[in-house]
Design a protein around this nucleic acid. Structure first.
Lengths: 179, 179
DNA sequence: TCGCACATGTAACGCGTTACATGATTAC
DNA sequence: GTAATCATGTAACGCGTTACATGTGCGA
């Protein structure tokens, strides 16, 4: 396994939940970890091929669906996943164009920065509502799953962050508005 | 100017604060926008060359320092910067290995996830203290600068986020500890 | 029958980091 | 004198996105 790319681990993790096709892995990632993790097909399919070659996953082809491949974890794959989960996660630098523009805001009309902040507030309020709804749905649909607790934690993380952003936006709107 | 890379704009923005060498731009970025923006020399110097070629910046060489280049914005450069600042910032996807590991936490001992969360709490508390101190220092050092207000806003953003993360960590520590 | 979702893959491209290479200046 | 900081740049590499290419299954 290469050192830097975590796509392989993301795949192993998804397959620890259930056997899936590449297509399904993508869909699952988009609907469950979209707030903090994304994968494109350009990463996914080559990574699946590598994992297969290394024996970390195996493929089944359903009889009625000759062009479909359902992958599942091998024992080695599960061990690799667990070993990765034990290690301290690496920090990754974020790049926020929004904050960069705000940082240089003295060069333009304050109203422009105010607009950007309003848009940020609006977006985070929407995301907040969506995440609250998702929380309820998730708790219902997976109420007996061992995964539920952890999934709710990552959702709650997103909620905490979005709330903080909204609060900050509102404070800054006052800050800029009073001028 | 290419479509996707924002390195050029980050440079123009830094030069809107003061004329600087490439080395100084890097240092300024690291000490002021490190929480939301980073640049490496491998990006910086080629970008400076491109900006120079396009006439968006100009270079002076100090007499006593023949190997040093001090860049400053041209009028066109300032216009380009302003035009960019007016546009709505693009979203960029983040990737959090921390949250990804937590998402798959059901595969391992809960104590491991608890450890990761404790580490996250610790780190954010430290960052919080550093940012609080920075806030005071910044307000003193740039109290007459038109930039101060905006710089404080980006700092305050980091503080809001870090506080939210700490709160979330503490809630999750209870959540996992009670089991 | 038409369009959407399912399904798998590759190629090109650009972004960004890391490591390398080199040398001057300054502070102790 | 020697170590740290200042100072500029390039090369190699890998990651990740986007666009391309192709085809099947199914429901309205």
């Amino acid at each position: 396994m290469t050192k830097a790319s975590k796509t392989e681990y993301a795949i192993l993790g998804m397959l620890s939940i259930a056997p899936m096709s590449g297509y399904d892995i993508r869909k699952t990632i988009q609907s469950s970890t979209a707030n903090f993790w994304a994968e494109s097909y350009g990463q996914l399919y080559p990574a699946l091929a590598r994992l297969l070659k290394q024996g970390l996953i195996r493929a089944d082809t359903p009889e009625d669906h000759a062009d479909k491949k359902v992958y599942h974890l091998s024992e080695m794959g599960m061990d690799t996943l667990k070993a990765w989960l034990l290690k301290a996660p690496e920090k990754q630098m974020i790049r926020s164009e929004f904050l960069l523009k705000l940082f240089f805001g003295a060069n333009i009309e304050p109203l422009v920065s105010l607009d950007h902040i309003k848009a940020e507030a609006y977006e985070n309020k929407n995301r907040l509502v969506a995440m609250q709804e998702k929380k309820i749905k998730l708790a219902e649909e997976h109420k007996d799953s061992k995964h539920l607790q952890f999934w709710l934690m990552t959702l709650e993380y997103g909620i905490h962050i979005a709330e903080a952003k909204v609060k900050w936006c509102e404070a800054m709107m006052k800050n800029l508005g009073e001028k």
